[in-house]
Amino acid sequence: MRRGIFTEEHEQFRETARAFFDKECAPHSEEWERAGKVSRDAWRKAGKAGLLGWEAPEEYGGLGIRDYRFNMIVSEEMFQSGSVGIGLGVQNDIMAAYLVGLCTEEQKRRWLPGFANGDIVTSIAMSEPAAGSDLAGIKTTAKRVGDHYVINGQKTFISNGLLSDLVLVAAKTDPGAGRKGISLIAVETTRPGFSRGRKLDKIGQWSADTAELFFGDVEVPVENLVGEENRGFYHLVANLPSERLGIATYAVAAARRALDLTTEYARERRAFGQPIGTFQVNRHFLAEMKTKLDVATVYLDQCVLAANAGELTAQEAAGLKWWTSEIQWEILDRCLQLHGGYGYMNEYEVARLWRDSRVQRLYGGTTEIMKDLVGRSMGF
């Protein structure tokens, strides 16, 4: 479909991204699925290709560009190449806002060069065993002792958890103040007392190294505080729209890939002497999916432009996230159905896309939470 939101510069970047995924990721997808994580070498090659940290100022290894269309292109080309997920989205869609927008100049000098060249893989640690969407319910604490914080607690469902070198931890610096007592503290994973738990055994996204993280009397200098003390909840809320925009981008890109694969399959697969796509019921399914995906793409593109203009609201991002992830699941499920028994075989890419997609309706805020946010914005 005609989109019209990309410039020649974006299309050149798209060629670079596609070349990287075709050469450095797609050939290793099965290997990474078996290993449960991608290689560190791939991260460094992504940095060398300019696919990381472009928001960082030039003096710290980036390009000083804040334009979410570049984020979108990386996600789209990852899926179109048939690659499994590599956690670039955590780095670019989520962590860039914190490291570029909230860090001091001294912190930027320490972290941004490695962030942009792939030497430093990052993760953000919010969720806990007893606290998911309710951030105010976290139990991890960071007690100020002299010129250090001492961190104790446990985090779970942490993307990039096994590979990360720098973890942005949401912790209670004032345990009695509820959400007003949360701070964000960057923890280098080499610090004594930090440990990683098991790689979580997920339904899908096998190559994504999602893990548990543990903090036992981890001492971190106060200079690792990101943003303002006891303002962490508000920093998180301010940046959640970009995270949900990233999830929506994944949703549309994955659904587009699944529909492309299914359209080709419907042309080639024959039953009763004719391609299965020529049966009216299947032709109607394909038409419905294409139309819904085109509508979702327009919706997403407009939200991307709003984000670039600094105008995307939390409510708009919530609506986008729940709508696109639900459409994604509807399309993926139908695409698998159209593949028949072969769709249930792991050797077919549509099977991986199907199982990888289910979590999209959960992380970043469940569909139910997203609808509640939209409803509240309407005065209910």
Rank of each mutant, 00 (worst) to 15 (best):
M1D: 09
G4Q: 08
T16S: 05
A17S: 00
F20S: 01
P27N: 05
E31V: 02
E31Q: 10
S39D: 01
A46E: 00
G50K: 03
G50A: 03
W54C: 02
E59G: 12
R66D: 10
D67W: 10
R69V: 03
S81D: 02
N92F: 00
N92A: 02
D93I: 01
I94W: 09
A96H: 08
A97D: 15
Y98L: 06
T104S: 15
E106L: 07
Q107S: 11
R109V: 04
V121N: 00
S123V: 00
A142L: 14
R144T: 13
G146W: 06
G146D: 06
D147E: 07
Y149I: 10
N152C: 13
G153Y: 07
S164H: 00
A170T: 07
K172L: 15
D174L: 09
A177N: 14
R179S: 10
G181F: 12
I185M: 11
F194R: 01
G197S: 03
G197N: 01
L200Y: 10
D201I: 06
K202V: 07
D209S: 04
D217R: 07
V222N: 10
E229G: 10
G232Y: 12
H235A: 15
Y250G: 05
A254V: 15
R257M: 12
D260E: 13
L261C: 09
T263S: 15
Y265R: 09
R270N: 06
F272I: 06
G273S: 08
G277K: 05
H284A: 12
A287G: 08
D294G: 02
Y299H: 12
V304K: 01
N308S: 03
A309Y: 10
G310H: 06
A318Q: 04
G319W: 04
W323I: 07
T324L: 09
E326W: 10
Q328P: 04
W329D: 14
R334Y: 11
Q337I: 14
H339R: 03
G341F: 10
Y344M: 05
N346C: 07
D356H: 09
G365C: 08
T367C: 15
M370S: 13
L373P: 06
V374P: 09
G375D: 14
F380T: 14
